[in-house]
Amino acid sequence: MTTQVNGLDSLALRADDMATQNNSENLTADKHQDVEVLETIGENILENPKFSTRNVNVFYGEKQAIFDASLDIGQNEVIALIGPSGCGKSTYLRALNRMNDTIDSCRVSGQLKLDGEDIYDKKMDPVLLRARVGMVFQKPNPFPKSIYDNVAYGPRIHGLAKNSTDLDEIVITSLERAGLFNEVKDRLTAPGTGLSGGQQQRLCIARTIAVSPEVILMDEPASALDPIATAIIEELIDELRENYTIAIVTHSMQQAARVSQRTAYFHLGKLVEVGETNLIFTNPRHQLTENYITGKFG
């Protein structure tokens, strides 16, 4: 619009142009077209959360993997962490129960609180933290022990059972809640590694709930499974929500839509957008979220 124009025709033209320009300005204002993510959009802060994290930065050596992520996770909710590969969603998840401690070069800064307690405080014992915040991994990783011993492993080391009847009960309830008991009740002494992939993953879930954690972190729990096994796991997550807070990292947007109440979208280490799952999938507010959800990348 730098050229000088004279006359009525040109005036009308100019008005037209301005109208279209206004339109596109509205659009960009709506969608935050800029790729630079300045701050998280949406309801990342909750009242009375289970987990509260503020300005979390995670570094692997010199490389920064998470930038200033602030996110709350509510009581008894399922929150899905989605985003393209390498966006830092698994790293963020592993920061929540200090699993990143096992990686020498990894450093976490910021404030992470579980029920108001700083989990990176010197007084916090990561062993006790992980008993409260259990984790299910991407690849099923049953121990090379029997099915029974796999589930009994956690209760045994934490001394949760007073006697063997108690332990039997914990094992059986955990297997039942993981929806595995009927399939394995006749072969509890068989090795856990002999189960199918989907059964192994449910065994790992049973193993996790056997220590009665408050929060369960799931790192793409169904990515190595077939659709039927995935459906069983998803149903299970829905049932577990009654008693547990669950954070689940997933590559599948359908899965996030099916199992979660809230969804957080990560992009290149930044938390882009957080919101109610159905809103985020129907009406994403950030252009990057929309691009990812509509399949432009990821």
């Binding site: 699993m99 008993a131 409260r132 121990f143 090379p144 492993y153 080391i157 790992c204």
Partner: peptide
Amino acid sequence: MRDGSLGLGA
């Protein structure tokens, strides 16, 4: 295996 065990609070 280590992750699985540590993740259970061992």
